[in-house]
Write a protein that binds this DNA or RNA. Structure first.
Lengths: 341, 341
DNA sequence: CTGAAAGCGCTTACAG
DNA sequence: CTGAAAGCGCTTACAG
C-alpha cells in the first residue's frame, strides 16, 4: 500500500523485476499479453515509477536547469515559456532558479542544480556575473551548459544571443532619417552587457551621421517601468528635452512614455521613443511603440537545442550564435516631426 | 577523474565512507581535524555531492513542483518569484511546468513531477481543470500539494487564494459612490473561477444599489492586453459607452485603456476603468490605474509555508484560506465625473 | 521472451 | 569518533 516497487509488481504478476522494468519503459521485447498483465497489476497496486532510482542507474535525470535573473520582465517570461516548452518536448523537466541579478545567488543555484544532477543548464547570467564561479562549479564534464542573451567574455561555453549592436545601429539610422538630432539613451542595469551593446550600437550609428549620444541614464532592472519613468524625470529636469529617447527595453520605454505624458510632453509627436524587444504591450499601447523585436521564443528554442546537442556531444566545438533583430516602426517615431526651434 | 564518489574520497583521505558522508552533511560528530582533511581531499579530487543517490536513500528529494498556466502575466511572474524565493529558503529546488491552461498538459506535468518524486507541489490549476485527473495522479500519499488562486470545488486539498467576491463588491461600492451607473465587465478566460468570482462580486455590489452589470466580455488569457483592447472595441461598437469598465486583471485593463485612448475616449474622465492585481504598471501608467491589490508575493509565500506544513503533517486537517484584497483608488476613477447627458 | 545477480552513490543503524 | 554491512528502487548485461 504505502510504497509499491517493481518487485511488488513482479511478484503480483508472476514475472521478474527485469520484465516489469522493460514493461515500464515500453520495450517491444515483451509479449503484448505479458505487457498487458503487468500493466493491469501496476494499475491495481497503484505503482508509480521512481525516476530517481532509475536516474541513479542510468546516470541521466531527464531534468534541465534554467537560471535567469527573474521573470518579471515580459521578455524573460516569453523566453522562459519557450524554454519550458522545448524542454518538455524533449522529455525533460525544468528546474528553475532566479538569480535576482546577484552573482552569489547564481552560483548557489548552479551548485544545487549540479548536485541535483541536471543533465544540463541554460544560463542567463546575472548582470554582474563574469562567469568566474561558473567555470569552477560547472566544470565542463560536470554539467553541460549554454549561456544566453548576456555575453560572458571570459567564459568558455556555447552562447546564443541577439545582435544588439547592429540592431541599435539600425535604430540610429531610423531616427536620423526622421531628422532627429538629440538622442538620449535610458539604460538598464549598469553592468549589463546587453545594455552596453545597445548603447554602443546607438553611439556608432549616430557617429556615422556626425551626431553624439546625448545622455545615458541607468535604471534599476527590478522596477523597469518605474525606472524608465524616474530616468525620464531626470532627463526632463535638465531643461530642453531630447528629440528622441531610446530605452534599453520596452518595459523601460513604457515607463518613459508614461512620464512624458504626465509632464504634458506628447510621446511620438514631441519626443520620439524607441524600445527593444517588441513585447505584446508595444503594439497594443497608445501610441504604439517603435521597437526592435528580439524574438525571445526563438532564443529559448535554440538554447534548448544547443544544450541537447552539447549533452550528446560534450567534445564538439563551442558555438556562439547571434540572431538578427528586427525594427518595427510604429507611432512613437512616425508621429515625430522636426520642431521649428 | 571522471566520476568521484564518497568511496574515492574515503580512500584518499584514509577514513570510511560513513565518515565522509557525515562530513558532507556537516555533522558535528566528526572532529574538526578529520573534517578539514576530508574537505581538502574533496576539493582536490573535485568531488560533487550526488543528491540523487542520497534521495534514494532518504526518500526526500528537496525539490518542489510548481505548476501554473504561464508566467506572461506580471501577476503570475510575481507569484512565481515569491514561490521560488521561499522554496530556496527552505532548501528546495523548484521544478516548474506551465499548463498553458490545458488540463491534459497539467496532468502530464503533474505525473512527471510525481515520478521525479518532488516532495510536494504547488498547483495553480488550468482554468478548465476541475481537479479530476489531479485526484487520481496525486493520491494524497504520493504527493502532498496545495492549490492556489483558482478554487477547485470538487478537490480535497489545502487552498490559498484571494477573497475576490468581497473585493469586487468594494469596487462596485466605489464606482457607485462616484455616481457611476452603467458598469461593464471585461473578463478573462471564460471558465476561470477567478473571473467568475469577480463578476459575481461586482453583480452583488451593484444589485445592492439597484443596478445591473451592463455587459461581460471574454478575453483570451494568452494575449491579455490585446484581449482587453479587443473587448473594448466590441463594447464601443455597441453604441453608447458605459460609465465604467471593470477588467478582471490589470493586464487586461491596460489594453482597455489603450483602446479607449485610440478611439478618442479619455480613460478616467470619460470612462472610469478599474483593474485587479496592482501590478507595477498600474501606478506608473498615465493615467494611473485604480485597482485591487491582490498581493501575489504574500500568496506565494503562504503557499510554500502551507505545502511544507502539509509535507510534515500529511494527516492534518485541510485548510482553505482567502486573503483580503485592497482597493487602490487612482486617476482612472477619481478623474471621472457624471456627464450632463 | 524471462530470471538471477551486480551495481548506481549514497545513508543509517549497529558495533566497536 | 570510526568501520563494515545492508539497503533505497531501479537497469543492465548475461544466461537460459
Amino acid at each position: 500500500m504505502e510504497r509499491v516497487t517493481i518487485s511488488d509488481v513482479a511478484d503480483a504478476s508472476g514475472v521478474s523485476r527485469a520484465t516489469v522494468s522493460l514493461v515500464v519503459r515500453g520495450s517491444s521485447k515483451i509479449s503484448p499479453q505479458t505487457t498487458e498483465r503487468v500493466r493491469a497489476t501496476m494499475m491495481r497496486l497503484g505503482y508509480v515509477y521512481n525516476r530517481q532510482a532509475a536516474n541513479l542507474r542510468t546516470q541521466r535525470t531527464m531534468t534541465m536547469g534554467l537560471i535567469l535573473p527573474g521573470v518579471r520582465d515580459p521578455w524573460f517570461a516569453d523566453l522562459t515559456m519557450a524554454i519550458e516548452e522545448q524542454a518538455e518536448a524533449a522529455g525533460c523537466t525544468l528546474l528553475t532558479g532566479y538569480s535576482r541579478d546577484q552573482p552569489e545567488r547564481e552560483n548557489r543555484l548552479l551548485a544545487t542544480m549540479v548536485e541535483q544532477r541536471v543533465d544540463g543548464v541554460v544560463l542567463l547570467p546575472a548582470s554582474q556575473s563574469r562567469g568566474r564561479g561558473l567555470a569552477e562549479i560547472v566544470g565542463g564534464r560536470t554539467a553541460p551548459h549554454v549561456v544566453i542573451d548576456r555575453w560572458l567574455p571570459y567564459h568558455r561555453s556555447d552562447f546564443i544571443g541577439v545582435d544588439n549592436v547592429s540592431a541599435a545601429v539600425e535604430v540610429a539610422d531610423h531616427l536620423v532619417s526622421l531628422g532627429v538630432r538629440r538622442v538620449a539613451y535610458v539604460g538598464g542595469p549598469p553592468d549589463c552587457v546587453v545594455r552596453a551593446e545597445r548603447e554602443e550600437g546607438l553611439r556608432l550609428g549616430l557617429e556615422e551621421h556626425g551626431l553624439d549620444l546625448d545622455a545615458a541614464s541607468y535604471v534599476d532592472v527590478d522596477l523597469e517601468q518605474a525606472g524608465g519613468s524616474q530616468a525620464t524625470r531626470n532627463l526632463l529636469a535638465g531643461g530642453q528635452p531630447p528629440d528622441a529617447i531610446v530605452a534599453y527595453a520596452d518595459s523601460v520605454a513604457l515607463g518613459v512614455i508614461a512620464e512624458l505624458q504626465r509632464q504634458g510632453v506628447r510621446p511620438g509627436q514631441d519626443v520620439a521613443v524607441v524600445g527593444f524587444d517588441d513585447i505584446d504591450a508595444a503594439s497594443v499601447h497608445h501610441p504604439t511603440l517603435t521597437t526592435v523585436a528580439t524574438f525571445p521564443g526563438r532564443l529559448g528554442e535554440q538554447a534548448v537545442k544547443a544544450l541537447l546537442a552539447r549533452i550528446s556531444h560534450p567534445q564538439a566545438a563551442l558555438v556562439k550564435t547571434r540572431f538578427e533583430a528586427r525594427l518595427h516602426i510604429r507611432e512613437t517615431t512616425t508621429l515625430w516631426s522636426r520642431k521649428a526651434a
